[in-house]
Design a binder for these strands. Structure first.
Lengths: 200, 200, 200, 200
DNA sequence: GATGAATGAGAATTCATTCAT
DNA sequence: TATGAATGAATTCTCATTCAT
């Protein structure tokens, strides 16, 4: 299966090049020839690995979301509020390089994209993430580690949206890392205080 | 005597048509002729009111942001935590029609847009909104209506991002209004609990 | 018939404006609205006086050629070589303002112009001018005032072309008046020497 | 392996097609698609060889002027009046095909053309040609082969303009070759007589 | 007559995709 | 498999002309 390995590696290399180009020029402004040049290939060669610009972009997005899921989806429910909060902090921590990809997906997931399959994929992801957070919060509530006033399910989905807000603002507006970290700290401090059952 | 037209009204009507078309097809896929048809005009007529597609979009965005500012920027600092929270609730309440505009601006503000003047405009807006929230929080803190553990300035900016997250998720993923309201309720409940000085 | 007088005057005024605009921007780049503005009229008004841009240009050209004919066509045959030469000098003497019109007609008479009626009109003009010069030369030859080695008819046409060359170069390349006058002097000196029967 | 094409040859072929189309319809009326069709190519292909219609035209003009220069610029000063005159005759002799290009350049060099770089190029050419003739005339004068009454420098420039007049009239007004040759003969006869020092 | 808003045919140019080599 | 020349559909914007007022 060496050919398959090559093919996969080539696809990966092309996607890497595509991401760079998309970051630099934006999806719509990026030409396939730019991607080819960046990848050190000829234009036509791209089509041996991807049927179209759209399919290429879909593959790029898929990879992106696999990573996102890995970071945001906690494997195991937190056993304490602190643990839950720290899990969020970890999820929200990512490098500057990765932050630069955000605008790309911001653009690609918009309605501009021919198929709205992406939009739905992302929608589903946040739905799932919200449910996941909901379950964890529910678990914490059961253990008395979370104020009873909260509705875990709804709060979980809201949390997912709010965290995404933080992430997006970093990526879209180029918030410096230091500033972003301070924002995350503030938000998590607020969350902890608000979630705490201390004075139910 | 020539036909007498209310230039401003015509611009408004064209922008209305443009928004509809952009909502339906996305900014990039929308052709000027689509906008013209929707507005019941000929292609060329659009150019009597806007120099280019880009300028038209800029005008659209400007109007959008004027409205956004009106809704989000509290005129006066809240005098109590409840008042502050209710202010946020009001800001977060908007109709379904308006929610449909969000993807349009999501697309337009991306790097795809030729001039990044928009991106900067939006960036600036959230910076200002963050500062505004920061001042209000600071005011509340001074009055003892806000837990002392929070840094008003940083939390203000984080709040702006998180609220934007809620709004964007509604608009982008078509969250039904009812569901959205529940999410907002959850979030505001969390905020109130977290901000409360009750047990400093 | 006051209306007719007005109409003619208006046409004249519009043509004047058109000439200015054409001089400044060139025929193709000049828009009807430019002409209207220059004439202090509305676009639509032009069409009350000229059926189209083309007809307007035709009228402009016609006026131009009437003037040209007046200057170049000698009314009476010269009775001496000197008189003939001085007639040419007079024809070749025209103001800077008029020189600025040359490029306009240069452009308009080209094949770009939809109808080639102009081209033919000009062609005919030079044919006639050539014949005219031919007759005068023949007359001089009969009187012994012109070297017998020349063929009046052919030389007449050649003369017309060569004088046009001088005129065109002045207009097209912006030769300063002083320089142009020197060129004309040189050419006429050459003509006189060449035409002289002195040593047949 | 990609198709191998001789880029220079392709450009040449396209220019050839463009010239034909321009001759037939005029520069302004000619569409890029006309040129493409004439060249047996698709519209887009033209843009692989020329960045724009303007650049294509510039290339066409450049080639034209290279040829013109070759024909008109005498390599070596004439050693006798006869030789000088014969040099002019050679320069003025060109085929009918070439005569058909004249209107194209007549149109292109007008003020209609966006950049007036051409206009200046042509202006410069005739300036140089005039100087060149001036020097040769001066040389002849020194040798006593030219009447002392002439100012070589001024006459040189005037000569350039007058010869251009002959050439232009042939091209623009479709003077039949035979007729044109007769005109040239007449003109050269006149020049020789006028330049001759015979009776200073 | 005068106006200028509206029209829409038309043209240059771009770029994803194909395919001969 | 790799190439990059060729393709042509698609889109923005212009401007001569029309016509309701």
């Amino acid at each position: 299966m060496p050919k398959i390995v090559d093919k996969a590696a080539m696809r990966e290399a092309i996607l890497q090049a595509a991401l760079l180009v998309f970051q630099a020029k934006g999806y719509h402004a990026a030409r396939m020839s730019d991607v080819a040049t960046e990848a050190g290939l000829a234009k036509g060669t791209l089509y041996l690995y991807f049927a179209s610009k759209e399919e290429m972009t879909a593959a790029l997005a898929e990879g992106y979301f696999r990573e996102i899921e890995l970071r945001f989806m906690p494997e195991q429910p937190a056993e304490s509020l602190d643990e839950f909060i720290e899990g969020l902090r970890t999820a929200l921590s990512f490098g500057e390089e990765e932050a630069r990809s955000i605008p790309v997906f911001f653009e690609v997931f918009g309605p501009s994209f021919t198929t709205d399959a992406f939009s739905q994929q992302v929608s589903k992801f946040f739905e799932t993430l919200g449910e996941c957070y909901g379950e964890h919060l529910s678990h914490l509530q059961t253990k008395g580690a979370l104020s009873k006033q909260h509705n875990p399910s709804q709060l979980g989905r809201a949390l997912a949206a709010m965290l995404d807000g933080l992430v997006l603002h970093r990526g879209l507006f180029g918030v410096p890392t230091e500033r972003y970290v301070a924002m995350v700290d503030s938000a998590l401090l607020l969350f902890r205080a608000g979630l705490s059952p201390a004075h139910d």
